[in-house]
């Protein structure tokens, strides 16, 4: 264990801003990528569903 207390852990020997920004932003960006991908999947499926329904209704006429 490196850290005497939780606040020492957060303090990062005075480099808290740099260390936590690096890790925080990195994981934020990774999470953002996942979020964007899942929203892209949702819109794509919705659009494909719409196209299919359109084709089906056209076919039945």
């Amino acid at each position: 264990m490196n850290w005497g207390s939780f606040s020492a852990f957060l303090h990062m020997g005075g480099y808290a801003f740099y260390v936590w920004s690096s890790f925080g932003l990195s994981f934020l960006f990774l999470a953002l990528e996942l979020l964007l991908l899942s929203s892209r999947r949702r819109t794509l499926l919705k659009r494909l569903g719409q196209i299919q329904r359109l084709n089906a209704s056209r076919g039945s006429k």
Binding site: M12, G13, G14, Y15, Y18, V19, S22, F23
Partner: peptide, 9 residues
């Protein structure tokens, strides 16, 4: 110091 921990990412 602790700043080197940034290299882990």
């Amino acid at each position: 110091g602790e700043a080197y921990r940034i290299i882990f990412i």
